[in-house]
C-alpha cells in the first residue's frame, strides 16, 4: 500500500508541461500538498466529472499531456465515462485513481472497490488498453515516465493506504481556477 501524498508528489515531480485535473476531496488536497500550480484544475463538486474534464481538455490540447488524479469513489460515480474515454481515444490522457476503498470526505465508509469491484477490469472492459494496478513507487515512476508517451488513454488503479492526512486546501474560487489555468496556456478570459 502506498502513501497517497508520496504517490501524488512523485507523479507530479518534474511536471513540466503537464496539465492536471483533480477530483473533489482528498486527491485535490494531495495535489495541493505537492505544490499549487497554475496548470492544476481542482474540482470541488460535480462528482464523477474529473475524468470527463480531463477528457475534454485532452481532446482540446492533444499537444500536452493531461493527468487526472481522482479517488475511487469519484470514479465510481462516473464509470460510464470510461467507455466514453475509450471511444474518444485521447492519446495524451492518463487517469490515475487513488484507491483506498473508502469515501474519505464523509467518514471513511467502504466504497465498492473495498467489496471487490475492480476498476481496472471495468476500464479494460470498456476497451482502454493500457490499464494498470500500481502498488509500488516504481509503478508510480513508470506511470509518470509514460505521461508523454502518446500511447494513451492510460488507466491506473493506485492502491493507497486508507488514512486521512491533514487537509491542504487549494483555492476554491472556480472562476479564478479557470482563468489562471487558461492564462497559463496563453488564453484569455471568457
Amino acid at each position: 500500500m502506498l502513501d497517497r501524498r508520496d504517490t501524488v508528489a512523485r507523479l507530479l515531480q518534474d511536471r513540466g508541461d503537464l496539465l492536471v485535473v483533480t477530483g473533489l476531496g482528498s486527491p485535490s488536497w494531495d495535489a495541493m500538498a505537492a505544490g499549487d500550480h497554475d496548470s492544476n484544475f481542482y474540482l470541488w463538486a460535480a462528482m464523477g466529472s474529473a475524468a470527463m474534464t480531463g477528457l475534454g481538455l485532452a481532446l482540446a490540447r492533444p499537444d500536452r499531456p493531461v493527468l487526472v488524479i481522482t479517488g475511487d469513489g469519484e470514479q465510481l460515480m462516473g464509470l460510464g465515462g470510461l467507455a466514453t474515454v475509450s471511444v474518444a481515444r485521447p492519446r495524451n490522457l492518463t487517469i490515475a485513481v487513488l484507491n483506498n476503498g473508502r469515501y474519505g470526505e464523509t467518514g471513511m465508509q467502504a466504497s465498492h472497490t473495498a467489496h471487490g469491484v475492480a476498476l481496472t477490469r471495468v476500464a479494460a472492459g470498456c476497451g482502454i488498453e493500457d490499464v494498470r494496478v500500481i502498488e509500488s513507487l516504481d509503478g508510480v515512476d513508470g506511470l509518470r515516465a509514460g505521461l508523454r508517451g502518446g500511447a494513451g488513454p492510460v488507466f491506473a488503479d493506485i492502491r493507497i493506504t486508507a488514512d486521512d492526512p491533514p487537509k491542504v486546501l487549494p483555492p476554491r474560487d472556480g472562476v479564478y481556477l479557470k482563468n489562471r489555468f487558461r492564462a497559463a496556456l496563453g488564453l484569455g478570459t471568457i
Binding site: M52, T84, V87, A88
Partner: peptide, 26 residues
C-alpha cells in the same frame, strides 16, 4: 469536428468545460 458520444448527459458538461480550459469551443 471532434464528436464525442457520451453514455450519459452529465459527462458532456465535464467534457465541454475541459475543452474550454484548453481553448476549444464546445
Amino acid at each position: 469536428m471532434i464528436a464525442v458520444p457520451c453514455t450519459t448527459e452529465e459527462e458532456g458538461i465535464g467534457i465541454t468545460s475541459g475543452a474550454h480550459l484548453g481553448g476549444t469551443r464546445a
